[in-house]
């Protein structure tokens, strides 16, 4: 009663043991169920938010762009903007605007602090937030030729009080310039007017911030007007104007181990000055905080 011929039973050395490679079934396809990409961004989630936030963008803040054509349709670029408002609305507005107008995803690079917050961190990642790590920025800009948005002021921007409005803080240590140099992509500065007045910071309470382990704890005008809870989520309907400035390229070779710190700081300072000057110019033209 030989079912299998002898010859085939002994074809392989070590046939005693079924070896993994002898499995006849081909490996399964990649059975993904969701559209969450490697960065944690989900197109579905974004389009849901675009539908919800679209009204806010269009009817509440009435965002108006100038120079959007300066953002390239293809290829990587690092978008750099000023950052303001206690819970800054500028990041979602820039990301939404560019996705709507150009149909390109924008990845927002932000402090790792977001990731430590339950739910907020996850939502932030699904909507295109990425930890601002030099490796992440390089991979996004150079390897995947995406648009990345960064606020070089960091938390110093949104935490500044109303009296300092539209005065740019220090641009960190110019890390963003170094990233753009290494990735060989242009920096595209964006000047944003309107975020400052949408949720103005009256004062900060460092003791509470320390207790809650957050970068800053602001008391805003919104808190006084709408109450402590509603005031944390309700923005004033300020008019948003966004101006895309000329892309800045650097005449240094990409992929260097290090770049001269002096050169990096100089370029960072130049970009900072450029955005600052444009802001002053835009404010000169602004007749009303509410109607632009």
């Amino acid at each position: 009663m030989e079912i299998r011929p002898r010859a085939t039973a002994k074809t392989e050395k070590g046939a005693l043991v079924p070896l993994p490679r002898q499995f006849f079934e081909p490996p399964p396809e990649d059975p993904r169920l969701s559209d969450v990409d490697e960065w944690g961004r989900s197109d579905n989630m974004r389009s849901i938010i675009r539908k919800i936030g679209g009204g806010l963008y269009k009817w509440w803040f009435r965002a108006e762009w100038e120079g959007l054509e300066k953002i390239p349709q293809t290829g990587g670029a690092l978008l750099v903007a000023n950052h303001a408002g206690a819970i800054p609305p500028d990041a979602p507005i820039i990301m939404h605007g560019i996705e709507e107008e150009l149909g390109r995803p924008v990845y927002g690079l932000a402090d790792y602090f977001f990731r430590t917050l339950p739910t907020v961190g996850t939502m932030w990642a699904r909507l295109g937030g990425v930890t601002a790590h030099p490796d992440n920025a390089y991979r996004l800009l150079h390897d995947q030729e995406q648009l990345a948005l960064v606020f070089p002021e960091g938390t110093k921007g949104p935490s500044k009080t109303y009296t300092d409005r539209y005065r740019l803080r220090r641009f960190g240590r110019g890390g963003f310039v170094e990233i753009a140099m290494r990735a060989g992509v242009p920096v595209i500065p964006i000047a944003v007017v309107g975020a400052e007045e949408s949720m103005p910071v009256l004062l900060r309470i460092p003791a509470i911030a320390k207790m809650l382990n957050v970068p800053y704890y602001p008391i805003t005008l919104n808190h006084l007007v709408f109450g402590p809870i509603l005031g944390s989520v309700c923005y004033f309907p300020t008019k948003f104007k966004l101006k895309v400035l000329d892309p800045i390229t650097f005449d240094v070779p990409p992929d260097q181990e290090r770049y001269s710190k002096g050169k990096v700081m100089e370029e960072a300072e130049r970009i900072r000055g450029y955005i600052q000057e444009t802001l002053y110019e835009m404010l000169r033209d602004r007749r009303s905080v509410w109607f632009g």
Partner: peptide, 12 residues
Amino acid sequence: SSRDPTWFKEET
């Protein structure tokens, strides 16, 4: 940790 890059390279 929260400070991690999205992708660790061998030398990171």
